[in-house]
Design a protein around this nucleic acid. Structure first.
Lengths: 230, 230
DNA sequence: CAGCAATATAACAGTTTCATGACATGTCGG
DNA sequence: CCGACATGTCATGAAACTGTTATATTGCTG
């Protein structure tokens, strides 16, 4: 991670298990993480030690996430603080949208870690561009997280959303072997039921996409273990 | 067939809620988790299906955590099993007593999951580096658990899943002699019936793979006992 | 050195794992 | 409502891997 200084994320989530999983993932990505288990705590922390971005669960005891968000966006000194809302169901997203709380982005549970990460980066890119490297590079492949574009040897590649997330996962740690479970968690999202063999199919599609202008297959199949880039 | 890929953690905690939160978090991190609600169950599981590490609550009904730990550390065959003790008390006296029973680390409740995770990794890094994606080195052989790559004298070696696991086992304790039963347990997994002679065959295959670019055979046959690396 | 037991190796057949194309379903914008 | 695109599952065939057996070799004992 090429952060000059670690971006600081505040995670507001009342369910300890989910909070910790999220915090752990963020820490693993090189973020500095603070935690809050409820709205009051969140508002207090924002005043005492303002983060660079907030990931806010919609459902919170007492002061709801919506209310927290509203307060953040009302105060002049915190108005620029990016807020990403987490919501449990897709129907609720519409309600949240309707309420116009001013959140900068919404992520629906179950979300893929990769997706949330990408959105956090997208927000930070807006406010702290220096802290985030917008592009990932591996050999002649360049992936731009902001524009969602991938090029190989300068030529643009056409790939679907799933293939894009797959590739970004691989490109974050070139060489690392991911097993199918890990890829499902990361690319598809936790708590989603899909056959693990489906991963194979998408790997195949990604391979095809990467070869569309010629060039060798950069993906490596590790029999009995999973897949890796390079 | 059970993938012996993920490190296996045994959680011993009598309070179901706490046990599940912990197990959930561990599973989210990619560990394979077994659970035990009391000391007897824990000891039984350790015998039947030994984990790579144990997270052990101090306070347990009947057989206390201390006693479980003492028994683990008394037996020769489980002495190397890392134990992390969880305790509600924070007095120094307890810490000392906990470590006296032979626990490898000690975490005081309430603990942060991230911290516990870090300590688990630290223990595994010590005892089973390859299991958490570390690198192992022996002479000119390098095995990387993260990329699943093995090189000798810089040149990549091609080996199948079983040979890979076999080699990581040897490389975790260079010089140690493993008999065929132990190798079967560790590389093939319990509850799998294969002829012990099969080990010989795979040792042969591993030897061939290690010699594929020339170089001496680093494996040592100990007649009547088993095999060792170096 | 002969005889014996343990180990090494080669060959083989069965099984598992993976790659790929086809297809039904679902989604989204027009 | 249609059509293009995306997605998950399945069927099939190929390739890699595995366990066993049979046979050769080795090392030890006396």
């Amino acid at each position: 991670m090429s952060a000059v200084e670690q971006p600081h994320v505040l995670v507001v989530e009342d369910e300890p298990a989910q909070r910790e999983v999220l915090a752990y993932n963020l820490e693993a990505e090189g973020f500095a993480v603070s935690r809050a288990g409820n709205g009051e705590e969140a508002l207090l922390q924002i005043r005492e030690n303002p983060p660079d971005i907030i990931v806010l669960d919609w459902m919170l005891p007492n002061v709801s996430g919506i209310e927290v968000c509203r307060q953040i966006k009302t105060r002049a000194e915190t108005r620029d603080l990016p807020v990403i809302m987490l919501s449990a169901r897709s129907e609720e997203v519409d309600r949240v949208r309707g309420l116009e709380t001013g959140a900068d982005d919404y992520v629906v549970k179950p979300y893929s870690v990769a997706e949330l990460m990408a959105r956090i980066r997208a927000q930070l890119r807006r406010t702290r561009p220096a802290a985030i490297g917008g592009q990932l590079t591996f050999e002649d492949i360049v992936l731009d997280g902001e524009t969602h574009r991938v090029t190989r040897d300068g030529k643009p590649l056409k790939l679907g959303p799933t293939e894009f997330r797959l590739l970004s996962t691989f490109m974050e740690k070139p060489g690392r072997v991911w097993n199918r479970e890990q890829l499902l968690d990361r690319v598809w999202g936790r708590d989603i039921y899909v056959d693990t063999r489906t991963v194979d199919v998408h790997i195949g599609r990604l391979r095809k996409a990467l070869r569309q202008h010629g060039g060798a297959d950069p993906l490596r199949t590790v029999r009995g273990a999973g897949y890796a880039l390079g």
